[in-house]
């Protein structure tokens, strides 16, 4: 039973990690909380829904790739429209966050206004198939989500370490101005950054959609991925991975435990937000985050 819970936790945690990486990637360079990332995740799931269910019957893997591309493009547009002006003006990070909040509100409500609040299911790709290992039953989708997320994050790591763009992104995370002075076109760099973050989000959205359902508020600002990113330390990629996994595990454990007769599962969300608030107060930089201090 305990190991079963751990496995459930890890599989959902890996999807959280995937989403959290998108938050952290943007935060590491632009130093603000991109609340619109959740909306991009949602739109990724809706793209997959439109491709696989509503309009066409596109195979799962192709739909996954197209969702990633679509979500990446949306994230790119999001940056161009809502952040680039503020970024060029070097506005305080709070302004960027408010702008992101505006985008999140708009996108979510466009979904409500056009497609509606109904919950849609994505085709249960391998969700029904289970693998039996002794007493454990593991859904193939969980395994697939875990492996694919791990694989994608590994590729992202390679991109960041091996490619020129990746090196530029890592450098920009330390000092954007300096990178710009060295001749990197910041607009392109930030565009690539948002595309990568968006496509990771799109992928996570599809996994979430398969596992649960597709609905407008699935990626709302207060989503778990964000909490995961904060736990790990916003701006740190290993932090986002560890934070996402940890949050998945903790949630799975809280869901099955109880105090006396009352099951704690209804308080799972309070628990997550509780962690968020407590962590922000006592360790705002999370486990791996770097400390940012203003100069006088």
């Amino acid at each position: 039973m305990f190991i079963q819970t751990i496995i459930t936790g890890l599989s959902i945690g890996s999807v959280y990690a995937l989403m959290a990486v998108g938050y952290s990637l943007v935060f590491s360079v632009l130093n603000f909380s991109n609340f619109a990332h959740g909306a991009i995740i949602t739109l990724g799931a809706y793209i997959a829904w439109a491709l696989m269910v509503h309009y066409l019957q596109v195979p799962f893997l192709l739909a996954l790739l197209l969702s990633m591309g679509g979500a990446g493009a949306l994230a790119f547009l999001n940056e161009r429209i809502a952040y680039s002006t503020l970024r060029r003006r070097r506005a305080p990070s709070l302004y960027l966050m408010i702008s992101a909040m505006g985008v999140a509100i708009s996108l979510q409500n466009i979904l409500y206004a056009t497609i509606g609040a109904k919950l849609y299911a994505l085709p249960p790709v391998f969700a029904m198939d289970v693998v039996h290992m002794g007493e454990l039953t593991i859904s193939k989708m969980d395994i697939f989500a875990f492996v694919f997320s791990a694989f994608t994050i590994a590729i992202l790591h390679l991109i960041l370490v091996r490619t020129k763009v990746g090196v530029a992104i890592r450098a920009a995370a330390h000092d954007m101005e300096m990178v710009s002075v060295l001749g990197v076109n910041l607009d392109v760099l930030v565009g690539v950054l948002f595309f990568i973050a968006g496509s990771l989000g799109g992928m996570a959205g599809v996994f979430m959609g398969v596992k649960y359902m597709v609905y407008p508020s699935m990626g709302w600002i207060t989503n778990k991925a964000y909490i995961g990113a904060v736990i790990g330390g916003l701006g740190s990629l290993p932090g986002a991975i560890v934070g996402g996994l940890l949050l998945g595990l903790l949630e799975a454990l809280v869901s099955v435990s109880s105090i006396g007769d009352t099951s704690l599962s209804t308080y799972r969300d309070v628990f997550s937000f509780g962690i968020l608030v407590i962590l922000l107060i006592f360790k705002p930089t999370g486990f791996f985050g770097r400390h940012v201090e203003d100069k006088l």
């Binding site: 709070l94 969300d269 937000f273 509780g274 608030v277 922000l280 107060i281």
Partner: peptide
């Protein structure tokens, strides 16, 4: 606690957001 910790302004916003959701739940 949140103001005493002197959070960055955006972290403070997130903390209040978490608080709002927690009250709702």
């Amino acid at each position: 606690p949140t103001l005493r910790a002197r959070l960055r302004s955006d972290y403070f916003a997130i903390a209040t957001l978490g608080f709002g959701e927690a009250v709702k739940v």
